[in-house]
């Protein structure tokens, strides 16, 4: 069924534009909405619009950007911010590591992969990884480039739009814009919960997050991530080991 719907491209150039077209629908809308919300959030913490554009283009991974902005706004120490962003965006490591073997091709120099890695973020990873296996080897990199570049180039525009909107629309609209991201990430988790380790991580994190915030607002994210995440991972390992011995 999926193979019937898979785009097959005549040339490398059309694979690039195929990636652009594929990204230009639902992925662009969802990502656009969250960068719209992010732009409003930056306006809300009184940073300039150039800072908003700078972080979107330089980090281009929204959860980390949101954590950074929230923590900076509440005056968390620099080290806490860097650690929190580092832990949130550590998921980019396995993402790049799993996506890149798909696009390798002798016609591209080694450094090209370090460049294209900038285009890997949650939306582009999910969106391209399911298409790449069906494409011809020389068309995979162009497809990823088209897909990633459209989203990458679109995101500062949405950031700017959100920034401007929140200054010029009635307060309820601004509140709705700022509300987009927490709601978006919450639903994204609920959509993806199958693995027991991840379910535990979300549960522990949801409980520990607000508690640690009351005691240590600066370090809440780092503590929550490390303690709740490690505990969930450990329990998941115990559960898997027990299931393994039951089956044998």
């Amino acid at each position: 069924m999926t193979s019937l719907m898979t785009p097959k491209y005549a040339t490398v150039k059309s694979a690039f534009w195929g990636g652009v077209r594929e990204a230009a629908s639902v992925p662009m809308l969802i990502m656009g909405a969250s960068f719209l919300g992010f732009g409003s959030m930056i306006k809300d913490i009184n940073w300039s619009i150039s800072l908003a554009i700078f972080t979107t283009l330089s980090t281009w991974a929204l959860p980390g950007q949101i954590a950074m902005a929230e923590m900076a706004a509440s005056g968390a120490p620099l080290l806490a911010i860097v650690l929190a962003v580092g832990f949130i965006n550590a998921r980019l490591l396995p993402m790049s590591a799993t996506l890149l073997p798909h696009v390798r091709h002798p016609r591209f120099p080694g450094w090209a992969y370090y460049g294209v890695a900038m285009l890997i973020a949650a939306t582009s990873w999910v969106g391209t990884l399911r298409r790449l296996p069906d494409l011809r080897q020389d068309q995979k990199m162009p497809f990823l480039l088209g897909y990633g570049l459209l989203l990458y180039c679109g995101s500062p525009l949405f950031t700017m739009a959100g920034y401007w909107l929140s200054g010029s629309v009635p307060l309820p609209v601004t509140l709705a814009l700022v509300f987009i991201n927490p709601l978006y990430f919450m639903l994204l988790f609920l959509q993806d919960l199958k693995d027991p380790g991840r379910i535990l991580a979300v549960l522990f994190g949801a409980v520990l997050g607000p508690i640690t915030f009351l005691y240590s607002p600066d370090w809440t994210l780092v503590i929550t991530g490390l303690v709740a995440g490690t505990l969930a991972w450990y329990l998941d390992g115990v559960l898997k080991a027990r299931r393994g011995t039951d089956e044998s």
């Binding site: 549960l203 994190g205 915030f213």
Partner: peptide, 25 residues
């Protein structure tokens, strides 16, 4: 798997905090 669990826990903590105890607008 550990990286994923830490990210999920951290994000879940952040999202719940943003909704329950917001600091911005």
């Amino acid at each position: 798997e550990w990286i994923t669990c830490v990210t999920y826990a951290l994000m879940a903590g952040m999202v719940v905090r943003m909704l329950a105890l917001p600091i911005g607008a």
